[in-house]
């Protein structure tokens, strides 16, 4: 018995010594590996897009490339990159999160000018997802603050989508009621109706769809379409508010990482593919609004026409200002939330 025990211990020790040697070189034989650190609802898009890029790259260069992805709340993902997650490219929910990475010196400050259209190859907007037949009769932003309506949205501090949700509501209230004080009141009332605050957009969607909590989900348009697709048209309806926001999820190559790994060419080719017809088509199929006018026309029946404000609207003054005013410590969100 004792001898067995001893040999067991020796075997275990040997395994522990070998394991670290084996671990860094797994059996994956790709010539290049890219890491795309992305936000929550892009899981399905990049699964398909990665396959497309790997095929293209193989056909053009004869080399194999493997693309890994990581998804989570946009702010949280940015934090991971800042803390050393070796992302070759970041594809996040909003520009400020990439700005935060740039502030730490991982990429050039003018990163957003390096690719066309504010480095956002696709756009989206914020819509309402309600239960089939819209039992609470939710038509527009005003209906969200009615008593007895439960609103599901993620946490603006960690989720990019939630920040777009919040700002779209702000834009509406500001336009309708005319003052910041009123807009603040409106949002305070809205967040009083929020029973669950998940850290990422996907968590909120799961709460609303699978767990059956809430009457309306403030969602990325693509996420709302996807929920209908996943759970069936007979479960949910999409309600388009009278005013929403043009969400531009940007993409960027992380200079510091690609220069160290020598992957700049591949990483740039990867992002450029997003702007091609094929990339745009794939985005549209995953319910992101394509930038390419021709592809956009093909899919114009899919996406409802909405009156959209942008983040550069004087009401916001760009992401840096919006972040500081609304979401930083002591900002408007903190004020309406601690009350």
């Amino acid at each position: 018995m004792f001898l067995n025990f001893k040999s067991l211990a020796v075997a275990g020790l040997a395994a522990a010594l070998i394991a670290p040697l084996a671990a860094p070189a797994p059996v994956r034989a790709a010539d290049t590996t890219l890491l795309n650190v992305s936000y929550d609802p892009t899981r399905e898009l990049y699964q398909q897009f990665n396959k497309l890029f790997a095929e293209k790259y193989k056909a053009e260069s004869g080399k194999t490339v493997e693309i890994k992805t990581s998804h989570g709340g946009s702010g949280k993902q940015a934090r991971s990159v800042i803390d050393g997650l070796e992302a070759d490219v970041v594809t996040l929910a909003l520009a400020y999160d990439i700005d935060a990475i740039a502030d730490k010196g991982f990429l050039a400050q003018d990163w957003q000018k390096r690719l066309p259209q504010n480095s956002s190859p696709y756009t989206s907007t914020i819509v309402f997802l309600v239960r089939k037949g819209n039992p609470k009769g939710i038509k527009d932003w005003d209906d969200l603050v009615k008593p007895g309506v439960q609103v599901i949205t993620p946490n603006p501090k960690t989720s990019g989508g939630a920040r777009w949700n919040y700002l779209a509501g702000w834009a509406y209230a500001l336009k309708k009621y005319g003052s910041e004080a009123k807009a603040k009141e409106y949002l305070a009332a809205l967040f009083k109706n929020v029973p669950v605050l998940d850290t990422g957009a996907r968590g909120s969607t799961v709460t609303f769809t699978e767990r059956g909590v809430g009457d309306v989900l403030l969602a990325w348009e693509n996420e709302a379409f996807l929920s209908k697709k996943e759970f069936g048209d007979d479960k949910f309806d999409i309600v388009v508010p009278s005013l929403s926001i043009l969400a531009e999820p940007p993409v960027a190559v992380v200079d510091k990482v690609v220069d160290r790994k020598g992957t700049r060419a591949v990483a740039e080719a990867y992002l450029k593919l997003l702007y091609t017809k094929e990339g745009q088509k794939l985005a549209a199929e995953n319910f992101y609004r394509p930038r390419d006018p021709e592809i956009a026309k093909q899919y114009e029946n899919v996406f409802p026409k909405v009156d959209l404000v942008t983040i550069d609207d004087p009401a916001f003054g760009g992401w840096r200002k919006a972040q500081k005013t609304h979401f930083d410590d002591g900002g408007v969100f903190d004020q309406i939330y601690s009350n």
Partner: peptide, 23 residues
């Protein structure tokens, strides 16, 4: 938990959230 601040947000989650907010 539901993770609603001040209602159902536990301290370890708040640590994670603060970390994710760069705080």
């Amino acid at each position: 938990a539901g993770n609603l601040p001040n209602v159902s947000e536990i301290a370890p989650l708040l640590i994670v959230i603060r970390l994710e907010e760069f705080r």
